[in-house]
Design a protein around this nucleic acid. Structure first.
Lengths: 147, 147
DNA sequence: TGTTATTATAACATTAAAAGTAACAGCAGA
DNA sequence: TCTGCTGTTACTTTTAATGTTATAATAACA
């Protein structure tokens, strides 16, 4: 998966939570994402497998499995694609070359540290935080439009 | 560029520094990377543009521009590809939808924070650190082989 | 001053991954 | 039962990176 998949999954969760009382077909969700219903359903499938979303076949009633305060960006990041770090070590190096042989292991150590730092930040942001900001942004947008 | 390009650029700098007294053709460097000389030269070109490597057309004498202690992983990360963050916000959302319109800006704020945390870690690792670890790994490898 | 080796670079082909698209079986609800 | 929707699969298209080839320009040296 690409590293912009997270953006779409967060978008979907925020959209669904903010439209709980309204119609929530994959068609509507897809149009907010500027994509097609099939891809939207596939992405919702990722969220379902990560136990972040409940869906019912035949019924346009997706629902977060938890309070948005209890879902972090990190949870959603884990849903994007297992074992796909932000930085990838190139393991396809020459094993005949001493440097080529040693480099992947060495880089891996530092990459894990970088990854952890990023993940720590992800753990501190919740879907509710995003919703609050989106609502604020919408209010601000309306105020500007009214002037 | 892919997010494993950084791995190759670090590899190149370490390799060059550790073979300063030896032959350093793009062919040799490419074989350590398990790739082709043309791509190796292209990657060295990225390092040259970032002012991390000096090369001379016609002469197989690449050389780091600075002491390896003074080149950080972050410097090399900047060389990989300008304006390509670890996480990408999907800006292709519906502007007619309030959520679709607001989400990119909201996510961007949090993504910058995540990016900064990762970059801070990168700034604390130098090429010299990598060289030390590679040398240690080679020594350890030899010791095990001798037993 | 040639000759050979090498780099820098461009053009093109190949590959791989993601996204787009279409189709269809199965469930929900009226 | 009928309609609308989901879950899923298969296939096509697109895009980005890499692989490959070729060529002009420079360096080193006999």
């Amino acid at each position: 998966m690409a590293n912009n998949r997270l953006s779409d999954l967060l978008h979907i969760l925020v959209y669904i939570q903010m439209h709980q009382n309204q119609k929530l077909t994959s068609d509507l969700i897809a149009s907010s994402l500027n994509t097609n219903p099939s891809l939207a359903r596939r992405m919702m499938g990722q969220l379902r497998k990560a136990d972040l979303l409940e869906t019912t076949q035949g019924s346009a009633t997706p629902k977060l499995t938890k309070d948005p305060k209890d879902i972090t960006v990190f949870d959603v990041y884990l849903a994007t694609c297992p074992d796909s770090p932000l930085l990838k070590v190139d393991h396809n190096t020459s094993k005949e070359c001493q440097v080529g042989n040693a480099i992947p292991g060495v880089l891996n150590k530092y990459y894990l540290d970088i990854q952890s730092a990023a993940e720590a930040k992800m753990r501190h942001v919740t879907i509710q935080d995003l919703i609050n900001d989106v609502e604020m942004s919408i209010r601000h947008h309306l105020m500007v439009a009214e002037q």
